[in-house]
């Protein structure tokens, strides 16, 4: 029981860091450019397909991961230059509609190229199989590596934003757009860069999650919507909020799916109530956060 519980906690952490990779890009793009981007899930999908394609051609998982981040970043730059750039000055409705249109174009485009059948990415040999942890727990090495990658990227992002020139410019862009461009920072280059960075992270997440599940059209949107829950819970525009929200949602989702049916069976003799509740639990958590702190856990005071 305890070892199963620890395993579920690790699974929750793993889901959490993957959600963070998605939410970080969304929240940065919103914070800096004020843009709500529904097509972020498409970039996640682009990354997964690029990885599956490269892994298939070369057999190298490392190359596949690099390709996922690069392809998604490239798609991000392209989309930013052609469409997104026109949306910064528009209202949220236009942004939602245009990026929804992009989802349709990306999804059908991918279906045209790769077909409707799911592709699979294999876990590389050295990372496959379980690893023995203390307390006699056997846990998937690959998932453990995912947690490590996620945490390293989170730390890297933190350093990038607080310690580098670009990071300071991003922070400045979040608080005062006009001032920073008046100070001679090339704001449109900064925007493209931020967008590409978020896209790259989403693409990488797509490849990593696609390895655990499958690579198919439409895989991005459920993750995108969960990432929105993360952002609402954590507080919009803040990287720390995204991290806290992502880990919290990852844990609640995974532990809820594990514990609620068990409790429900103990209480009512059937797991139905538990499974229904577990499918809704992160949204219930979001509702609670909205009731108590409408700006999110790490958001500004209301």
């Amino acid at each position: 029981m305890t070892s199963l519980l620890i395993e579920q906690i690790l699974n929750g952490l793993q889901l959490g860091v993957m959600l963070f990779l998605m939410a970080a890009g969304l929240t940065l793009v919103f914070g800096v450019m004020g843009l709500i981007n529904l097509a972020h899930g498409s970039l996640f999908m682009v990354g997964a397909f690029a990885a599956a394609f490269v892994a298939n051609q070369t057999g190298s998982y490392l190359l596949a991961l690099i390709a996922s981040a690069c392809a998604a970043a490239l798609a991000g730059v392209l989309v930013e230059l052609v469409v997104i750039r026109r949306l910064y000055q528009r209202d949220h409705l236009d942004q939602v509609l245009a990026t929804f249109a992009l989802i349709l174009i990306f999804s059908e485009g991918t279906r045209m190229v790769f077909g409707s059948f799911p592709l699979y990415l294999n876990i590389p040999e050295i990372l496959s199989g379980p690893i023995s942890l203390p307390f006699g727990i056997e846990y998937s090495l690959f998932r453990l590596v995912l947690i490590a990658i996620g945490l390293i990227i989170a730390f890297g992002l933190y350093l990038l934003i607080t310690r580098t020139r670009i990071g300071i410019q991003i922070q400045a862009g979040e608080s005062d757009r006009e001032m920073i461009s008046a100070l001679g920072v090339n704001i449109s280059f900064l925007y493209t860069l931020v967008f590409a960075m978020g896209a790259g992270l989403a693409g990488l997440a797509g490849a990593l999650v696609g390895t655990l599940q499958s690579v198919e059209v439409g895989m991005g949107e459920p993750v995108l919507i969960t990432a929105f829950v993360v952002i609402v819970v954590g507080g919009i525009g803040s990287i720390q909020g995204a991290l806290v929200g992502a880990i919290l949602i990852g844990l609640v989702q995974t532990l809820g799916a594990y514990l609620l049916p068990i409790w429900s069976t103990a209480l009512f003799g059937s797991q139905d109530v538990g499974s229904i509740l577990s499918s809704m639990i992160i949204y219930i958590l979001m509702a609670l956060v909205l009731l108590i702190r409408p700006k999110g856990l790490m958001g500004g005071a209301t």
Binding site: H92, P222, I225, F228, V229, V232, I236, Y283, P294
Partner: peptide
């Protein structure tokens, strides 16, 4: 619940509750 917020939040939250 959604009207406790506005703007981009409102969009994300309605989308999320729809998914619920």
């Amino acid at each position: 619940l959604c009207l406790r917020t506005d703007g981009a939040y409102f969009i994300m939250i309605t989308l999320a509750f729809g998914q619920m």
